[in-house]
Design a protein around this nucleic acid. Structure first.
Lengths: 366, 366
DNA sequence: AGGAACGTTGACAGCGCTACCACCAACGAC
DNA sequence: GTCGTTGGTGGTAGCGCTGTCAACGTTCCT
């Protein structure tokens, strides 16, 4: 059939064109912009390609067209459940597109991020997804100068490079504290691990809420740069108890820590929620299953990834979104670990806001 | 300086060569095989490249050389913690190599895997990492015919396509059951979710061990195709209790299920380990932190990913391993959820093997 | 001394595809 | 009827790099 083959025996576009009785350029157009072809030729090329089992050579395409069909994704961690949900959304959204995902791990280092960004940009990606809004100045400049759509995820903030999708960690933390206030708690501890920018903003939200209520106390805060884990949750809670034995509740910056606190309370025979209330962050699956079930802040991680990739692909293909910044909000999911305190139903401290329970809140941008 | 530039303003190899006062091909060799150059030219090219900020065009390289520097990775799930550990190992190992990772999600479908394999192979990857040993016949044929190194991970089995790294899920399950036998348990339930080939083999191992001991009972098995979760663990355990109220222990095919069982026991006021012993699989981090701490089978997931990528890269570069199949084994990690039963110290049933506690076992291939 | 052998370098010709421009018919507007 | 205009098509000329092979100088052997 095909008289000329590449050494590897692969079918080239020229063979398809010949088989279909059209010029190579017409065949090429079929794959890039089928609408430009007449009905007849389109059908001919299509059947020829199928018959020959043609698969385009992406390297040649990239070389000739000066662009690739690669979407670069920079995330800080592969271990963290939070990111695997986001990633799943990204992969799902890209699956039926022509774009492929190129994933890299910054390990929570903005210097590493800068290095990877340089690497990515050199290959002219079709688009880029980066985590957060805390890039180095150099990274920021590169992103600004990039000639492809950029999507920042996980957070929203004031100066999007291009598009942005996320939620306010600050507001979410405030809502968590507001919830505990409503339930009658006053001595609310904070547990944080890793302390990346997003956790830091949760801490900021916590501090603001506590200060507004006149309840701030430095001794209520236990934070570490150590990567998060369930075990660490127990350890941090132990520290917290040592510093502030009189706490009535704990806000954990993520759910792993909350689970660790739950187990530590079991070990110490501390009753949840009677002695200590717990609220987590992210609403991982196990929170609804624990005993007692654990209150948490639900964030739309899968949706965030899916939307990010979808919007990015749209932008790549010229369909720029009307609204480049999307706030996916969060929900306070109330469970057994933070019920209303009947015995102590003081009014909600002022200034702490009033989160509607179980209702999605678009986070107002700081 | 550079008088000729690509439209995008990028430095090309030719510029570097000119700047260094050598021919383009010499400059090219510097990046592929620096040892072939003389000391002097090597230094000249190196400094010229650095000075100009040269970044090679991978598309052009791929087109000219008929190969890419991409390692394709096919995994069944992005959600499962197990795979994120493996992936982290793969990414870590590839990070300082010239190879980049192209990840795709088969969603536990061998048909999807076949499709993705076809796609990958068309782009001539430098190497391929696939999960498990249960490919379609078509996939298997493609892998056999591929002209790049192939690594199968997560399992070991009799007929490696090329290289293989993993452990025997069958043996690991048998070791889990042997451990429970040793502790004096007889009515051992099995809980399984998803029932992918690896979980199936764990079930096989469980069944074989139980049959060998003359303790097999179909009513002890609860398995579902539903994806795993902590909540599901509770539900499956509830089913198990309904079918076999007299169980003395449960082998959970993964740790999420084990955690779900733990919580369900709390809800039902079933004492662990006094009434029911629990053993999980994978030894996720939280198992050591739960109350009581949970016995599990430790598998070397990160190491598996790291070794897989390392060996694959070695093979790509011509350093084929002396031993193409690597058994990473497993460990029984004994914790509070499965202590020795003093009150009932019958001898270990025969035929169930005797796993050395806490000692790594290379899994003998079925 | 002559030749082989080696290490180092360069010229040339593409890899498979697409950007760019030119072309041609068919059509309507004036 | 002439002129644009449009939609469809094709020719040409690379994209930036590397495979291949030839050529060169040097060293070592006989």
């Amino acid at each position: 059939m095909g008289r000329k083959r590449t050494k590897s025996g692969k079918i080239r576009l020229a063979e398809v064109a010949e088989h279909a009785g059209v010029s190579p350029i017409t065949a090429s157009r079929f794959f890039r912009n089928p609408e430009a072809l007449s009905e007849a030729k389109r059908a001919r090329v299509e059947s020829a390609a199928k018959e020959l089992g043609y698969v385009p050579n992406l390297a040649a395409r990239a070389l000739a067209s000066h662009r690739t069909e690669v979407i670069g994704v920079l995330i800080p961690s592969l271990t963290n459940n939070v990111f695997s949900d986001v990633l799943r959304g990204i992969y799902d959204a890209s699956e039926n597109s022509r774009y492929s995902i190129q994933l890299s791990n910054t390990r929570y280092s903005i210097l590493q991020e800068e290095k990877l960004l340089r690497l990515f940009l050199a290959q002219k990606p079709a688009g880029l997804i980066v985590t957060g809004i805390d890039q180095t100045a150099e990274s920021h400049a590169m992103l600004e100068a990039a000639d492809c759509p950029i999507m920042q995820i996980m957070e929203i903030g004031p100066n999007p490079v291009d598009m942005m999708i996320g939620f306010s960690h600050y507001d979410a933390a405030r809502a968590a504290i507001a919830h505990l206030f409503e339930q009658g708690h006053r001595r609310i501890g904070f547990l944080g691990a890793r302390m990346d920018p997003r956790v830091q903003r949760r801490l900021d939200g916590y501090q603001a809420a506590m200060k507004d209520a006149g309840l701030f106390d430095q001794r209520l805060i236990v934070a570490t740069a150590t990567p998060t884990s369930v075990t660490l949750g127990g350890a941090l809670f132990t520290d917290l108890l040592a510093k502030s034995p009189d706490i009535d509740s704990v806000f954990c910056a993520n759910d792993d820590l909350a689970l660790g606190v739950l187990f530590e309370c079991r070990r110490r025979d501390i009753a949840i929620p009677e002695q200590i209330a717990i609220i987590g962050f992210n609403d991982l699956e196990f929170m609804a299953s624990a005993v007692p079930t654990l209150t948490s802040i639900r964030t739309n991680r899968y949706e965030m990834g899916r939307m990010a990739a979808t919007m990015l692909i749209d932008a790549i293909e010229g369909r720029r979104p009307e609204q480049p910044v999307l706030d996916l909000g969060f929900k306070v999911i109330e469970r057994q670990s933070s019920p209303v305190r009947r015995s102590d139903s003081r009014p909600t401290p002022t200034g702490a806001g009033t989160a509607n329970k179980m209702v999605a809140l678009p986070s107002s941008h700081d």
